[in-house]
Design a protein around this nucleic acid. Structure first.
Lengths: 259, 259
DNA sequence: TGTACATCAGTGAACGCGCGTTCACTGATGTAC
DNA sequence: TGTACATCAGTGAACGCGCGTTCACTGATGTAC
């Protein structure tokens, strides 16, 4: 038994004896609770500033100022500005991923096209509601910032949902008449391998050509959102709702999802 | 006759009389030549720093330092940092537009699919060669910077080429068997009007449904390039050449271009 | 053609700002016996 | 249970940096007569 867990056990027993459990909801010292609360508050304030001003305007000093503490105090919670950025990036990926995941619960699981539509609209809705957070994760990289490994898993949540949708579609169609890959769908070599790997990771069972179409639809989706948010539609398709809805359906056809 | 043009006329006569024309290639004073040369040098140095470090690292002081002049001197050429940025943005749009335009000269004008391919590859090639300039015009907007009206015309060059390609395709197909818009291609209202306006601007004669497909392909193209440059393909389709070539062809099919 | 004046390019110092990060410190909280 | 010690959160001053922009100025170039 380690020293830490022994200490925790003693604390637990003490709490049981003295009825402190109501106060210390989890087995945490006041310090630990204060720490996790303040960490959350720092992130919340940072997110507020990110939303208001964008990532490159985000500064530790401003966050500390707004929280009424010395800027040096933040270094107890985040060893550098980049680590705070990393935390925000992970939160943003988790947030958009959660939106997309929740969207699946609103439609019949068997209705693949409805799931595709719901996911796309959820992603766009999140992006419109959090433009700077979207820019942080899908826009031009922050110069000098290198995303660490920990961001990979959250980043993969949206692709995983789209992949799962493809996998369900493929396994459900059970050799229908349109089931075979069309002849024009033979993939050139380097792509065939990549598609297989991606399918193995997020869409088990999906054949390469379908996976490739999925990748194309994926890039179309985010390309359209980025154009809308970054101003490329100004004077073109400015309220982009109609184009978006139409494109989503066209891409569903392109992938081959049933009506 | 204005004072300026009288002055120029006198200068011209003087130049003719004294044989100075060889020196003053255009009718410009030494000051004017120096001015336009230095303006170009400033932009060149700024572009170098942009390429090396990205837009938000670009500073007037660093440019001046590299040019061996006082930072205050730059204000004779650009009234503010934002104006320098604007100049770079315009140059970047012109540069990518020119690449795309030149690509059309390398293939048969009647081969629409080859033109589409060539244009897409030219755009991607330019983006890979100038990632920070690409980010400047197609990435997340620089915070606090408002793009002025002068950037609109250069920004429209690539869309104009794609539009021209669509227009040529449409006018050339002359009521072939696949000529009619398919039934699923009836556009919902707000989009129909937008598509008509876009067509009027860059693709005269092109019907709404075809224009809408063009818009979708356009966003797919830039979405894919942005994903590649901004790192979303890391570990997925990392050398993206194959996916890119494949997607370009798939989108050509999607638009309905003949093989 | 020569001269007096006006225009313009470029300088160097300064203003005022904000930033990330470090460091020695105080005082509160937690731990071991 | 009480006490001595260790750990940790937070402070405030400082370091060193770079930035955009302004301003009064000098000296060169251009203009009018």
């Amino acid at each position: 038994m380690t020293r830490v867990s022994r200490a925790l056990l003693c604390l637990l027993i003490d709490a049981l004896i003295h009825g402190k459990l109501a106060v210390m909801t989890a087995i945490q010292t006041a310090r630990q609770r204060a720490r996790s609360e303040l960490t959350a508050e720092i992130k919340a304030e940072a997110r507020r500033q990110l939303a208001a001003e964008g990532a490159q305007r985000l500064s530790l000093r401003a966050v500390a100022r707004e929280l009424g503490m010395a800027s040096s105090a933040l270094y107890r919670y985040f060893p550098s500005r980049d680590d705070l950025l990393t935390a925000l990036i992970i939160d943003a990926y988790d947030s958009i991923g959660e939106s997309a995941e929740r969207s699946g619960g609103l439609v019949r699981a068997a209705d693949i096209r409805a799931r595709w539509r719901a996911c796309c609209h959820a992603v766009r809705g999140w992006a419109l509601a959090h433009p700077h957070e979207y820019a942080l994760i899908y826009g031009s990289p922050v110069p000098g910032y290198q995303a660490p490994q920990e961001t990979v898993a959250p980043a993969i949540r949206v692709p995983a949902i789209l992949g799962g949708l493809l996998a369900d579609f493929w396994s459900a169609r059970a050799a229908g008449p349109a089931g075979a890959a069309r002849p024009e769908d033979l993939l050139p070599q380097p792509l065939a391998g990549q598609a297989r790997e991606v399918a193995a990771a997020v869409a088990p069972g999906v054949p390469g050509p379908l996976m490739a179409r999925g990748l194309i639809a994926w890039t179309q989706l985010f390309g359209m959102i980025s154009f809308e948010l970054f101003g490329q539609f100004a004077g073109t398709a400015d309220p982009a709702d109609a184009l978006f809805a139409y494109a989503i359906d066209q891409m569903a056809d392109f992938i081959g999802l049933p009506q």
